[in-house]
Every structure is written in C-alpha cells, then in structure tokens.
Design a protein around this nucleic acid. Structure first.
Length: 273
DNA sequence: CGGTGGACCTGCTGGC
DNA sequence: TGCCAGCAGGTCCACC
C-alpha cells in the first residue's frame, strides 16, 4: 500500500498536528505485527513529547524528546491517524498513543505486515531495517547516475530492481510501474540490457512523479489514508497500475498485466519497449 | 554473492 | 445465497 508518496503525505499531515504534543500513555492492544512490538514499547514512549515527524524511505520516524524515536512502517494495510480520543476504537487498532490534548495517535493495520519499534535516536542508523536503505529520490543529493551503476550489474527485471529498497528507497509496485511507463520501458526488461540513457531517464523522472503523487495526497486503492484519515486522489491519475484492459492515456492501446513473481506488472505494449 | 519463490496476515471480489 | 480461489500498496528468509 503505502509507498513513498503515501508515507510522505502521512508525515506532512501528522507533523503539523502532533509536533509539541506529549504522549501521556500508550495502549498496545495487539503486539503481533511483522516484528513483535517490544514489551517496554509503551513505557519507553510514555511521558515523551513529539518533536518532529520524519521519513526514511517507507519508514516513518516520530522524533521524541530525550533523544528517543518511535519508528513505524505501514506494511500493506497500515494507517497512522490522529483522531479525537472520544472516537470509538475499531478492530485492528493495534497501538493507541494517548496525547495530553484529548487526541490519540492510532496505528491500525488489518494485515499486520507493518511494524512499530522504539529506541534511542543514536541506535537508529545501525537498526537493521534502516541500515542499507538506498538513496531516497526526494533527497537533495539524490544522484541520477547512481541507478545505472546498479542496473548495469544486475540480471534482474527492471521492475524487480526498482522494488529493491537497497537500490532506491521508497518505490513500491505502483510507482515502479508508473515510472517505467513514463520512461517508456517494459517492466520485464533485464536491467543490464538497458542503456545508460534509458536508466538515467528512470532516475530523472522518479522525483517528479513522486512529488506529483504527493501533491495529490498519494494513492488510495483501499486502505491507505493520510494522518487525518483522508483518502488520496492520485489513483485517478495512474497511467498503468491497476488499469489492465483500459486504454492507454497516451495512445489508446489496452494496458497489459503480467505476473512477475508473485506480483502484477502493468504496461502499455505500444508506449513501452 | 545474486536471484527466486514462498511465507506471513486479513479482507474483498468475482465466478460458479 | 454461499463457498472458494485469487488477489492486494511489503518485507524477509530459505534455498539454489
């Protein structure tokens, strides 16, 4: 579900609402996420004030005082929302952080593929899930040429390479497919077969596509919501993802779907080669 | 090391 | 109406 634009939208909508708020209590209602929520998670966060909300790839970082951090990943179906504490808690609300102003931060995740962890800020860089993340396309120092250096040595299909968070942090199946449409490249092409020019085109388009998706509040297929539980709008502007059989917006040919591994890839047979 | 395929979960949809 | 197969935005691990 949530790829870079969705996580960034949550970061922005949440940041403005929770910065400066103190967590007075944390209720962990279900600890069995992708990584089991640690026993001391609640006590480690209780009493802390949220200073800032940041993002690394698809990971959200709630920076707290006392140099502590609450890290979360939304997996496929996760939401992190800021709601009035009066609102009834729902099934799959796994973590509720009660704030001093009568609101709560709720982590909700039906499939439980996400994670929640807390640690001293200093431990974050060496924490395995974050260590080794590739460059983030929205970072100021994102280098267009870096992708080609990886691609030229890889036997993998280009769609699969783009999904690898060690290569580029933040792309998932929606935006990898969209990116390849705009670059005019079929998802099934082996990475090493692509010219420098074609790979550079993918890398150059990535920040533009992701920023545009953020401008529309991300893509809501089903579960995804921003920090205030609102849907995104970018699903109406997708070019290929989820559009099997529908006409290409550029040339009218029917969009095709192929299974690559366990996941679908979408492309226009006429615009992409 | 690089690459692939299955496992982990729940919920929804479409076909019979 | 009911049941079951297939599919879903992600990541990790065992295996070759």
């Amino acid at each position: 579900m949530p790829e870079l634009p969705e996580v960034e939208t949550v970061r922005r909508t949440l940041g403005a609402l929770v910065a400066g708020r103190r967590i007075i209590r944390v209720d962990v209602l279900e600890a069995r996420l992708r990584i089991r929520v640690a026993r001391d998670f609640a006590s480690f966060l209780s009493g802390r004030t949220i200073v800032d909300v940041q993002r690394r790839g698809k990971y959200l970082l709630l920076i707290l005082d006392e140099k502590r951090v609450w890290v979360t990943h939304l997996g496929m179906s996760g939401k992190l929302i800021y709601v009035n504490a009066e609102r009834r808690r729902e099934a799959h609300d796994h973590i509720c952080a009660v704030l001093e102003n009568g609101f709560e931060l709720r982590y909700h995740d039906p499939r439980r593929f996400g994670l929640a962890a807390a640690m001293p800020l200093g431990k974050l860089p060496s924490w395995p899930p974050l260590r080794g993340l590739g460059p983030d396309p929205l970072d100021a120092d994102f280098a267009v040429g870096g992708l080609y250096q990886r691609a030229r040595k890889s036997q993998r299909k280009i769609r699969d390479l783009l999904l690898d968070q060690k290569v580029v942090a933040g792309l998932g199946n929606i935006y990898s497919n969209e990116l390849l449409f705009y670059a005019g490249i079929r998802p099934t092409v082996r990475a090493y077969k692509l010219s420098r020019q074609r790979v550079d085109k993918i890398a150059a388009i990535a920040p533009r596509l992701l920023r545009e998706a953020i401008d529309w509040g991300g893509t809501s297929f089903s579960d995804y919501r921003d920090g205030q539980d609102r849907q995104g709008e970018f699903q109406a502007r997708l070019s290929v993802y989820g559009r099997e059989g529908e006409p290409c917006r550029r040339c009218e040919h029917a969009i095709k779907r192929v299974a690559l591994g366990n996941r679908s890839a979408f492309y226009c047979p006429s615009c992409q080669s």
